[in-house]
Design a protein around this nucleic acid. Sequence first.
DNA 1: GGTGGCGTTTTACC
DNA 2: ACAGGTAAAACGCCACC
Length: 833
Amino acid sequence: MKFIPLDYDYFDFNSKNYIRIIGRDDKGKRVCVIDDCDVYLWAILKQDVSDKEIQKIINGIKHLEIEKKERTTKIEKIEVVNKNFLGKRVTALKIFATNYKDLHPIASELDFIEIDKRRGYDLGFITHYIIEKKFRPSVWYEIEGDLLNNSLEFGGIDSALDVDFCLKLNSHKEILEQKFNPKVIAYDIETDEFKIGEGEILMISLVSNYGLKKVITWKKNEDEEPEKAPKFVEYVKDEAELIEHFVKIIRKESPDFLVGYYSDGFDMPYLKSRSEKHKVKLSLGLDDSQPRFTRGINLSARTSGIVHIDLLKFIRTAYSQYMQSETLSLNEVAREFLGDKKIEFKHRHSSKLKGLDWNEYYEYNLHDSTLVASLFEKMWPDILGFSRVIQEPIHEITRNGLSKDVESYILHNLEKFNEIPEKRPNNPDVAERRHIEKYEGAFVLEPTPGLYENLAMFDFTSSYGSVIVSYNLSKSTFLGSNKELKKIPSNETSYSIETGGETIYFDKKPGFIPEMLKQIIESRKHYKKELAASKTDDPIKRARSNAYKLLANAYYGYQGFFGARYYCREAAAATAAFAKKEIKKAIEQIDKNGFKTIYSDTDSIAFELKNKNEKQTLEFLKEINKTLPGIMELELEGFFKRGIWVTTRAGTTGAKKKYALINKEGKLKIRGFETVRRDWCKLARSLQNKVIQMILSDGNYEHALTYTKEIITKIKTHDVPKEDLIIRTQLKKPISEYKAISPHVIAAQKMIEANIPISAGNLIEYYIAEPKDKSKKKLVRERVKLQIEPGEYDIDYYLNNQILPAVENIFQVLKIDIKQIISGKTQTTLGDF
DNA sequence: GGTGGCGTTTTACC
DNA sequence: ACAGGTAAAACGCCACC
């Protein structure tokens, strides 16, 4: 039969590990596949251990047993194998045992002096299985096996599972490109208290991608006539019945994916807590099991056989760095991806709702699930693509961070290099790495403030990634520094770079990490090209391209990340240093060839064309690319009609990471300015945006100045609506942990006093109000008010701390002193002094 | 007890 | 739990009057 594996789980039977995969066949039937695989770990031997000694070790460990309450784990066999570890040839013992969970204690028992390292016991059984059997998630297979039909094998697993077929796998063969339309249900709960354990679940909405659309609720107002409720509403008796009914629907529909938004942290734990309270079973699993929660700071909820997805988590790692949205609220994310938005609904406690208010509430609840379902449809190609590229199941792919994604990719590709996996760092290792001094990072050129015309911008494609590949920078290729090496490696065989006052060396013989990254970058290029060439958009190909792009961009950060298996601070430092060297070289070339560099940051260079035209610039680009090392490549980011760079607030130097460009079509590219910062009020941001836009399109300040004066007048006459003055700042940690009590901390305290639940991660909104007593209240935080608090805004604050700083430096480039205009004085020229 | 100056903390961006 | 670089606001603290 044809089969696509979706949900991976494992169980023990007769003390051995079995994998249980649930997926679908091509007819849409639910299928469960049982399989097992070799379980082993590696003991890497020291160099030149004799055969006799090896035999002695084997004899010493082959009778090793790990006694556990529920099982005894034994060594099954031991092989001697030639492998690579961190690029070096090693002889290793492949020690097969009966249970993966006991590999760690076995490793601890291997205390022979000839054994150098123990590896391969900390991958997690599912990852180990996928590597071992190459039965990869989210890919179609032609499979063959023995049907289990009320069989007693595996403790009667098939009869306990709610699937159409259950079989023991004999063989599997990948099939190319077969379409898969998953069955998806999005869900969302509404409660009358936000805190888990303190309120009741009022209603649950369910929306599928095949027509299901429901709100289940036990809340109806007595004076409401039920026939007036929308058709999609289904009433139940009470909260307990609500949960039972929800479970019944999910189990009956048996979707592949149950999708929520922040559902790992809210909906699922809430459901669990309420079901415990009412002593009803939340048996969402196909094996009748309840959701399992992984402990740790970040809750994650796993339902057996039905993959539970918290879309928020996937969005955070896969998209957020490329998104415009300032928060990851469902509302804003839906607006960005779907152009849709949440139905406005003022949340009130359920006791305050009456009559037809409830209908609005139902609609609102349903709409949230509709949004989640649509978002899922949009993101599904990426989820599938990520799962296939990284080779981890969808449950993991949708929750992992970038470092985990990179690491999984590496682990699943080690075999091509005959590599034994490196271990996870232990706590002392991590602690030590975290305390190592930071290394020097990117190069940022200080711009000369001014208004420039006729510009171009180049940037390095996958900059750091291409440096890692071109200079072969990784843990396994790092040779050491001049301070510790007895013999300095030659230029023929190594790359060298200065960083932190020493010279460090990397082998030229390609290492497996740069080689893998090279593959990633090439694949990305390949898919991108294919996409550009085809007339129709292929979401699956686009997704693959996206996955490779994300991986390529995260590799550098991964090597410098303290939690990484393949952590290598030197490789990360060298990457930054080589990138710096290359971009400086490129700037030199640009200036030597008749252009004039204005600004550069990390991997991009903005310059004036001067007397050259666009065609000549592109020809120059081709030429410079011929001189770049390895796979490094510059590309054109764009041509621009005009651009502005300003001074810092202190006014003495050019401000870095802050500029605005406009192209011939009038499209703006604004970086770093307050316009793009969410912790500035709307008024200041939109004014700055307008001013930038007017100056860049006109090339002079007349319109911008007139407009600014209008805004100033509005502020002075208290004519600005409060919502335009709201400042939004994220609360990054619990209130008690703040050493400096800034305005947003005060606002957060006020919210708690007003019974508005907030916690770390929330956006805090407030405005600065006029002080009652003008003489006192010097500090900004003493004038903080929440939007719901009555009061007038503080004119001085908004003029001097929001409006003025937003436009001052921009006008200053055009020699206009906006400060004088704000303070109401007439313009003075130097001549007046 | 207020003020100026400078360092520190904090956020958000590149 | 990817990295470092940078601007800027506001607080915190101390010397000083």
